[in-house]
Structures are given as C-alpha cells and as structure tokens.
C-alpha cells in the first residue's frame, strides 16, 4: 500500500498543502494533472528524494517518512529513463543486486528472467547509446524491478514514445503488474493511458487531489 497522509511539500515557489492519496496493495494508481501541478513533486516525496514539510508517508505497514530513499525499497522509472551511459543493459539490470551483494548466480538468473519478461534479451550487451525510446524505458523498468520492490513509481514513463510503442509499453506494464503484483503509482497527463492502466485514478488540480474510478476499467 502507498499511503500519503496530509502531505505538505514545497519545491521552490511551488507548494502543495495537506494532500492525501492511497493506493491499496497490489493495485495500480495513476496520478494525473497538468504540467506544473505538482505530480512529480509528490512522486519525489514518496521516493524520499524530496523531504516533506508535514504529514506521513506509509508504504505497506511501515512509516517511511523519515527514511532515506535507499532503504524505502521503491523501484523508480523517471521520464527520460535516466540510463547510465557507461553501463550496458546487463549492468543496469544487475546494478541494484550488486549493491545488495547478491551472489553472482542468483543475479545472473534474475537478469535473465527480467530480460525475458521485458523482451530485451538481445540487448543485454548493448549500451544505452543507440537504444530506441521504447527499449530505453524497458531497460529502466527492468532496472527498477530488479530487486523485487513492493512499490513501483513511474514518472511519465511513456510520454516521449510514439503511439505504437506506447501501446506496446501499456501491454507490457499490464503484464508486469499481473506477474509481479507490485503496487504502482504512475504519473501521467495522458487520459487514455490513465484509463487503460488505472485501478484507482487521482487528479491533481489547484493543489487538491480528487479520487475517481476510471471509466474504462
């Protein structure tokens, strides 16, 4: 479960006051809003990349408000993928496992499993240079899922993709969710994407969050 309880957060001149949001365990939450409405600020608060002024953040049964991002155990896919240009795809998928000193055999098996699920096995030895937008996002998704997080945060992961690739990625995200059961918070401004993927839909307007049920789900 992702539970934001009366969060106040500030980013420069921008401020959100006393907003709340809950995504139940195993569900897919989509947060919608215009550019500059504070979607990313809120996501960064969940990740622990931005400290909050007041309120509480709980992930599952744990209050993570004071925890640093490294121990929150959240998979994060930023808008542009933010791949590491000096590493190949295999290194991306095993990065979090290496940090956790997972033994080599287990790590290799996990990399193979992820590559198979995300259809990126032929790309394993390539560097991000020359990967297409869709391929980059698959790698970023694989990197985020590699350490089997309970929570996944996606920040407009499909916004830079063409329509066909976007549809394929939507299918892939549905497949990932079916297979892993990961609780997801997905930020987007695309209504089609939101209605297709969301179990719970949140709209952020003028600093307030409204919860609604997606019409086509």
């Amino acid at each position: 479960m992702i539970d934001l309880d009366n969060i106040s957060v500030q980013a420069g001149q921008f401020r959100l006051d006393a907003v709340s949001l809950t995504v139940p365990t195993g569900r897919y939450g989509v947060l919608m809003g215009k550019t500059g409405s504070g979607k990313t600020t809120l996501l960064e608060s969940v990740l622990g990349l931005r400290s909050i002024i007041s309120g509480r953040i709980r992930l599952g049964d744990e209050d993570v408000t004071a925890l640093n991002p490294a121990v929150r155990g959240i998979g994060y896919v930023p808008q542009d993928g933010a791949l590491f240009s000096r590493m190949n795809v295999r290194d991306h998928l095993s990065f979090a496992l290496d940090i956790r000193r997972v033994d080599r055999k287990t790590a290799e098996a996990r990399v193979a499993e992820l590559a198979d699920m995300l259809h990126i096995t032929p790309l394993l030895d390539r560097t991000p240079l020359g990967l297409s937008g869709g391929e980059r996002q698959r790698v970023a998704l694989g990197r985020a899922l590699s350490f089997r997080p309970q929570i996944l945060c996606l920040d407009e992961p499909l916004s830079a993709l063409d329509t066909d690739t976007r549809l394929q990625m939507c299918e892939l995200l549905e497949d990932v969710r079916r297979r892993t059961g990961v609780t997801t918070l997905h930020v987007t401004h695309n209504l089609d994407e939101a209605e297709r993927l969301a179990d719970c839909l949140f709209r952020i307007t003028d600093g307030k969050i409204e919860t609604s049920k997606p019409s086509a789900h």
Partner: peptide, 13 residues
C-alpha cells in the same frame, strides 16, 4: 542528468 543519481539512490546506493 541528476536523475541518474536519484535512480541510483532509490536502487539502494
């Protein structure tokens, strides 16, 4: 891209 560091930190660094 500062997001690279952000991602690394969320991955456990």
């Amino acid at each position: 891209n500062p997001r690279c560091e952000h991602v690394a930190v969320t991955l456990g660094c």
